[in-house]
Design a protein around this nucleic acid. Sequence first.
DNA 1: CATCACGCTGTTTTT
DNA 2: CAGCGTGATG
Length: 722
Amino acid sequence: MGSSKIDYEKVLNPAQLEAVTTLEGPLLVIAGAGSGKTRTLVYRVARLVETAVAPESILLLTFTRKAAQEMLDRAVSLSDPRCRFVSGGTFHSLANRALRSYAETVGYSRSFAIVDRSDMEEIVRSLIPELRVPKGTPRFPKRGTLADILSKAANLQQPLEKVMLEEYGHFLEFLREIDTLSRLYEQYKKTHQLMDYDDLILNLRRILEHDEEARKNLSQQYRYIMVDEYQDTNVIQADIVKWLAHEHRNIMVVGDDAQSIYSFRGANYRNMFDFSIHFPEAKKVKLEENFRSTQPILTFTNALMSQAHEKFTKCLVTKRTGGERPRLFDTRTAPEQALFVGRAILERIQQGRSLRDCAVLFRAAYHSFELEAELTRQSIPYVKYGGFKFLESAHIKDFLAHLRVVVNRDDAVSWIRILRLVKNVGEGKSQSIMEWMRAGGISPGQLEQWPGIGKRDTGLGQLSRFLGRLSEQDMSPAQAVEKVMEYYLPILKERFDDYPRRQRELDQVISMAGRYKKLRSFLDDLILDPPTSPADLRSQKEHEALTLSTVHSAKGLEWPVVFIIWVTEGRFPPARAYHHPSVLEEERRLMYVASTRAKDELILCYPGQEGAPSWSGHAIPWGGHATSLSTFIRDLPEEVVSHESGSLSSRSERRDWQWRSGNIESKSPDRPSEFSPGERVRHPAFGPGVISKLIGHDKVEVFFRDVGRKLLLLEYTTLEKI
DNA sequence: CATCACGCTGTTTTT
DNA sequence: CAGCGTGATG
């Protein structure tokens, strides 16, 4: 390699070098956290391109598209601009691309639409009446749960009964109904040319299995395949890999069994073990040297994982010297935890850290609500990742639905959405209009010819003419979104009081459309690679801000200072109570992923009040168990993690947060007397109901701050009783 | 069709 | 508690 810009032997350690220079044949890389996995992939891409492999014939499958893009960008700046032409993306985007050519094989048209999770739930909702569940049946699962069950069965490729036995035992009595639902759902998708996330990969596999030509074409197109985060793939994805690499066998998979945290999606780290069964000649490489964290942090994570039941890796070690033990703080209660973290962040800033150096990680998005209120009070800027699905908020879905029906006329979900936005049209009318259109092969612009149209249905005429214009000419995505905005803005204003914010968000979506030539690619990308927050849409400029993130969204990232907050809560159903081994196992992996994000400093905290009430200040009703930080952390020895108290020192401080967080009950004699009618007061939590009780007024005006799915109350004003 | 009062129920993570 | 679904009422 005389022409190489890169001196691989110098920049890579021996294990990495082996992984990078083994270009032919199957290769399994077991890579511990922070062991330079991404680096290895990037260099391998560069190496392949340097050795005159056509970039288009390299496929890099990652967990998110962003991850693929970042790796390819790095490869470009490292070696060769042609690395830009490497195909990178997720299994889902690969499947989408393939299915746009071969959908007929699996009985679909190539113009099928993709439904996201909320669409799926909407379909399920519309099918439930057909199950004839007697009304008032107690404990029939909610649509979200039903969607979970269907999706899990699809992902695990197991019969409903088995999935329900294992994980939804409390719903077994409804097996028949759910089974029917499953069939109805499949049928619905077929008739309306819809595929959900699971169908994408399932159908890709089906094509690879049954369509010899497609298989040939695809495996010839991608001669060198790399899969990142292999521990997070499921059996279907493993099969896809198997088929794609069956002939040429140039397949490299990279993963860390300990970091498998997507079991809820059917991911199985055993795929890592099974790789050698499908590819017996596979070479194995272990990356064990950690380049990220200090040794005390790694000692902690090693201790954590040594208790795991099934594992086949590795002890993490580093050459980095020094560093402090991770610290574990018992903050007594959840509100104190928020205060504690807020303060600790400020301390780090005073010590010269930048906000960008710090991150706070947690298991579920809502766990940071209290902290967010605290950060707002302290005017600490933060960016939050994970949890709330920006794209699934009503106004965005409504807006996009108008485009989706133009691209795919059969997309019933979107049809019903936009029809119901029309005045005087609800569930009933939208359904019958749908059926009439399907039966007569009516085009969107002919909507106003619906025989059932009444004098008051002028809105239908408007919609009809609008859709007619929209589908007439071959519009660019940029023009199309402008047109939709024109039509939709009045509806938006009427339906939402907070329309200025929503309009701004729509403007951001609109601005994305300019980058696309085809409307369909624009819509597909929004579903397959959704922006995680409105902030994400703003130019990707780095903010000088603290990061808050769910552990899931923090995968692959690192920060000098990492806080982990673990919030007290119960678990449901009882069969999966917190002490259940499978829950502990899952939690342990999460904790592992979270703690291996830290470079220099790791701070864990938990509200230690055992059995503390968890939900809205009430005891957990279903007999589940409230727990503080799982015992597998608390029982770690002092040498590994220092146990400290994070409780607030002074009594007055404690009183202060107590009422600020709404913990004082209405009957409490301690009710703050500062409240007087008409006064505007800052208050961090809970809704008007609580406040009313607290202050003894039944009219309050509240001021919310939008923190995603939930609104956080910041201020309120009492109103005089009339 | 839209609105409201009432009763029931309870996890989260993402493509 | 609060979010959701249901059933009754304009």
